[in-house]
């Protein structure tokens, strides 16, 4: 009980600090970076659901971000559909394509999912690039800021709060899913699909619904990104970008939701802070990936990851000292 209270207090302090940020940080560049962190956090969380929980590998998340972006941007900016509907449609559109790919796998095999996601992401990029009438091709197009009943979120602070709100909602929803029979089914089929099927879990059905649910959140993040950057073009939805997003989830720790936010934070902020880190980011990330896979496959906050190791090391040392 005491431990729970402590956790709760830390949580409250953290939330208050996060809410106060726009009052302390008035530099709009910094706020923009933080918005990016939050958007990528949602993407990393959705990847965590697919890769960390249900144990499938997805190399094409950026395509689903793109589907959410384009859908929401076109509905809102071009067709003047009310913002909240366009925004949700972005998520649903992405989920729809998630369902289509998932169905392909359900009736063949989920072993092909990784390859299918790579192929699909290339197809999407080509469509974004070449369907001028709708996407304006490689030139991209300007999008508008979110608008509720005539009230436009055009200041950095208002955008910060909007991103925060969406992140909190997505986080809570994903957290609840992972703590339910759905999340347990995902982990079970990841750990041992035969035992899972003997426990009454329809393995393919749950792999499919995990992919669809995650795609919804990816699409929401995409929609958020489109209205935050106010400009979209196909260059943002490449396989490189997919890999970067995957690395965020892996660095933070597969299976840890706070880890996904941490991973997104590190991989968004470091290249912003250091010019060198930005220029060599592909190299650095490659090296980082190798080191992670060799020495800390569970990432920073995953079960048995770096954080757990450090904690147990400190506990051990503390224990030894007490014994002496």
């Amino acid at each position: 009980m005491k431990k729970l209270d402590k956790k709760f207090i830390i949580f409250i302090v953290f939330m208050v600090a996060v809410l106060l940020v726009p009052f302390v940080v008035t530099n709009s560049y910094m706020l923009r970076v933080l918005c990016n962190v939050m958007i990528y956090s949602i993407i990393a969380l959705s990847i965590n659901l697919i890769v960390g929980y249900s144990g499938q590998l997805d190399f094409g998340r950026a395509a689903f971000v793109g589907l959410g972006s384009y859908c929401s941007a076109i509905l809102f900016t071009t067709l003047h559909v009310p913002f909240i509907l366009s925004f949700l449609a972005g998520g649903l559109f992405s989920a729809l394509f998630g369902a289509l790919l998932g169905m392909l796998c359900r009736y063949s095999s989920f072993d092909y999912l990784t390859l299918i996601t790579i192929g699909f992401s290339e197809i999407c990029r080509k469509v974004f690039q070449n369907w001028y009438a709708v996407t304006n091709g490689s030139f991209g197009f300007r999008t508008s800021r979110p608008e509720f009943f005539g009230f436009v979120l055009d200041t950095p602070a208002s955008m910060y709060y909007f991103c925060l709100l969406i992140l909190v909602i997505c986080y809570i929803a994903i957290k609840r899913i992972t703590k339910s029979k759905y999340g347990r089914a995902y982990m079970a089929l990841r750990d041992d699909s035969i035992a899972a099927s003997y426990a009454g879990i329809d393995v393919k059905k749950f792999k499919l619904n995990c992919f669809v649910i995650a795609s919804f959140f990816t699409g929401i993040a995409g929609a958020l990104m489109a209205h935050f950057t106010t400009f979209i073009s196909p260059t943002v939805y490449t396989t490189d970008e997919s890999l970067l997003e995957l690395q965020m989830a892996i660095l933070g720790g597969l299976g840890s939701l706070p880890g996904s936010i941490l991973g997104a934070g590190i991989l968004t902020i470091v290249p912003e802070v250091s010019r060198a880190a930005y220029e060599y980011r592909l190299l650095i990330m490659g090296v980082m990936m190798v080191i992670l896979m060799l020495f800390a496959p569970k990432g920073l906050l995953g079960r048995g990851g770096v954080w757990d190791k450090v904690v147990s090391l400190i506990r051990k040392k503390g224990g030894k000292n007490e014994n002496k």
Binding site: K181, R184, A185, M187, A188, R190, D191, D192, I194, A195, A196, A199, G200, I201, G255, R303
Partner: peptide
């Protein structure tokens, strides 16, 4: 043995209850 290795014992049992929830 086929337990769900990266899940806790109580989670393992709850997976058994999947169809009842």
């Amino acid at each position: 043995i086929r337990v769900f290795g990266d899940m806790t014992v109580v989670e393992n049992l709850k997976v058994g209850m999947h169809k009842l929830i």
